[in-house]
Design a protein around this nucleic acid. Structure first.
Length: 450
RNA sequence: UCCUGCGUAGCUCAAUGGUAGAGUAGGUGACUGUUAAUCACUUGGUUGUAGGUUCGAGUCCUACCGCAGGAGCCA
C-alpha cells in the first residue's frame, strides 16, 4: 500500500510477516529476564507480542538497553518474526535491535490487582491495559455497526444541537450554562425533538452524539455524559419502530461477534450468549408484564409515611424500577421489548394508544444477563391539539415548543423513533460489570478527572 | 437527596482495646523459555482529618472529608 504518511508493521498483522525482519513501534507491556534471555512483551495499540532476546546473539549495547527497559517505556524493536507454538498469538519476534524513545519510570499500574478508586484516578493510563484495550476496540466496532446499519438502510445522519433553550422532556435535571445575552441554555438530554423535525425533512434520519443528564445517579449503569443514537422515521408506527430496534440490536451484536473474537476472548465473554441474540426478540405489553410480576410474586417496596417499608402487589400504573426489570428478564436469553406503558409515567410527546388512551405507544428494550434497559422509544403524538393539551398538562412553556408544534401543523404524519444508549449496549456485549469501563473518560457525579 | 459499607506501606490486604504485619511492586544479586517466573538479601508507615473515652486506640464514640453501590431518575 502506498501512503503519504508513515505506515508500520503492526502486531495485529505479524502473522503475515513470518520469516521477515520487521520493526515494531510501541511500548513495553511487561518484561522478564531469565539469565541471558530477556522476554519483552511489546504492545503497539493493535495487540501484544512477545519479543525474545538472547544476549550472546546481540551486541553489548543492545543487551544493555534490553535490561534497562521498564514497563511502558516507548521503544522500536527490530527482529525476525517466527512461528511459535508456545505463544498465544502463534508468533514471536527474535530481537536484533532496540531503539529506546523514552524510559518510563515508576509506572503506577502493575500487572497485579488494583482497586477501583486507584484505577479511576489513573484512567488515562488504565486504558493501556489489555482488558480496557479490548473493551475500547469493541466500543469502536459497536459505533461503526450502528453507523453502517443506518447508512445502509436509507437513513441520513442529521445531528441535533447540544445547547438547547429548554428541557426536552420538561424535567429539571439538566446541566445549565450562561448563553451570552440570551439567558440560560442547557446541555441536551436528548436530540429527539430536533430529530423529529429532521425526519419531516429527510424521511428517515438518525442523530448520534453525546447526551447529558444532571441526575445524581450513582449506580453501575449511569453516566452524566453518555452517547446515544436516535433514529426517527416518518410514517413509522410503533410496530415498525420495534421491528427496527430489533434489527439494529441484532446487527450490532452479530457484527461484534464477527469482528471482535479476540477481544471477546480477552474479556472472557461467553459468546454463546451473544450468538443467541437473533430475531425475533421477546415482546410483552406493560399490562402483561404487571400480570407476570404479580403471578410470580415480585413485590414492590413502598415507603410508608413513618419511613418504614412494606411490600405490596405491583399496582398497574406504577413505572418499573430496576428490580422489576431484572425479575422479568431472568426468564429470557435474549432482549425483550416491553410496550404500551401507562401514559402518566411517560413523556408528553408519546402518542396515546387509540384503542386504550390509558397507555402510551411507548417501548423499552431490556437486554438479558442483568444488562437492563438499552433502548427507549415511542410513536410520537402527531395531533396538534392533543400534543398542546399534553404540554399544558405537564406545565411546560408552550412558547418554547412552538416550533415543535409547527411539525403538527404543516403536514403531520405518524412517526416514531427511539434512543439506544451506546455505553449500556457496550456494557452488555462486553460483560463489563460497570459502565465506567466502557467509555474512555467517564463522567460521573463525583468524578470528572481525568 | 436518602440508605448501607469502606478508608492501614507505591499497590492489594491482615492485625481479640496491649510491641503495626504479609503479599506484591521498587532496589541488589543468581539463572537459556518466562507468561502473575523462581530463589536470596533489601528500601518502604503522621493507620483519611479533628476531637473524645481509656492506664493504653488501627480497633470504641462524635463530627467532617474521600471512595464504593443500592434506591429514586433514566439510555
Amino acid at each position: 500500500m502506498t501512503s503519504r504518511y508513515k505506515s508500520f508493521v503492526s502486531v495485529e498483522d505479524l502473522h503475515q510477516h513470518v520469516g521477515q525482519e520487521v520493526t515494531l513501534n510501541g511500548w513495553v507491556y511487561d518484561k522478564t529476564e531469565k539469565g541471558k534471555l530477556a522476554f519483552i512483551k511489546l504492545r503497539d495499540g493493535s495487540g501484544t507480542v512477545q519479543c525474545v532476546l538472547f544476549k550472546p546473539n546481540v551486541d553489548e549495547a543492545t543487551a544493555a538497553s534490553a535490561s534497562a527497559l521498564t514497563q511502558e517505556t516507548s521503544v522500536s524493536i527490530t527482529g525476525t518474526v517466527r512461528e511459535e507454538a508456545r505463544s498465544p498469538t502463534g508468533v514471536e519476534l527474535d530481537v536484533t535491535g532496540i531503539k529506546v524513545w523514552q524510559i518510563s519510570q515508576d509506572y503506577p499500574i502493575s500487572p497485579k490487582e488494583h482497586g477501583v478508586e486507584f484505577l479511576m484516578e489513573h484512567r488515562h493510563l488504565w486504558l493501556r491495559s489489555a482488558r480496557q484495550h479490548a473493551i475500547m476496540r469493541v466500543r469502536a466496532v459497536v459505533v461503526k455497526a450502528i453507523r453502517d446499519f443506518f447508512d445502509g438502510n436509507g437513513f441520513r445522519l442529521m445531528d441535533s444541537p447540544i445547547f438547547t433553550p429548554n428541557a426536552c422532556e420538561g424535567t429539571s435535571t439538566l446541566f445549565e450554562t450562561e448563553y451570552f445575552d440570551l439567558g440560560k441554555a442547557y446541555l441536551t438530554q436528548s436530540g429527539q425533538l430536533y430529530a423529529e423535525a429532521s425526519a419531516m425533512a429527510l424521511g428517515k434520519v438518525y442523530t448520534f452524539g453525546p447526551t447529558f443528564r444532571a441526575e445524581k445517579s450513582k449506580t453501575r449503569r449511569h453516566l452524566t455524559e453518555f452517547w446515544m443514537v436516535e433514529p426517527e422515521m416518518a410514517y413509522f408506527d410503533l410496530n415498525d419502530d420495534m421491528d427496527l430496534a430489533e434489527d439494529l440490536v441484532e446487527y450490532i451484536v452479530q457484527s461484534v461477534l464477527k469482528n471482535c473474537a479476540k477481544e471477546l476472548a480477552t474479556l472472557g465473554r461467553d459468546v454463546s450468549k451473544l450468538e443467541a441474540v437473533r430475531r425475533p426478540f421477546y415482546r410483552m405489553s406493560y399490562t402483561e408484564a404487571v400480570e407476570w410480576l404479580n403471578k410470580n410474586n415480585v413485590k414492590l417496596n413502598r415507603k410508608q409515611t413513618d419511613g418504614s417499608e412494606i411490600q405490596i402487589d405491583f399496582p398497574w400504573g406504577e413505572d418499573f424500577g430496576a428490580p422489576q426489570e431484572e425479575a422479568i428478564m431472568q426468564q429470557f436469553d435474549k432482549p425483550c421489548i416491553i410496550h404500551r406503558y401507562p401514559t402518566e409515567v411517560k413523556a408528553f410527546y408519546m402518542k396515546r394508544d387509540p384503542e386504550d388512551p390509558k397507555v402510551a405507544m411507548a417501548m423499552d428494550m431490556l437486554a438479558p444477563e442483568g444488562a437492563g434497559e438499552i433502548i427507549g422509544g415511542s410513536q410520537r403524538e402527531d395531533n396538534h391539539d392533543w400534543l398542546l393539551e399534553r404540554l399544558q398538562h405537564e406545565g411546560l412553556p408552550v412558547a418554547a415548543f412552538q416550533w415543535y408544534l409547527d411539525l403538527r401543523k404543516y403536514g403531520s404524519v405518524p412517526h416514531s423513533g427511539f434512543g439506544l444508549g451506546v455505553e449500556r449496549t457496550v456494557k452488555w456485549i462486553t460483560g463489563a460489570d460497570h459502565i465506567r469501563e466502557v467509555i474512555p473518560f467517564p463522567r460521573m457525579i463525583y468524578r470528572i478527572v481525568p
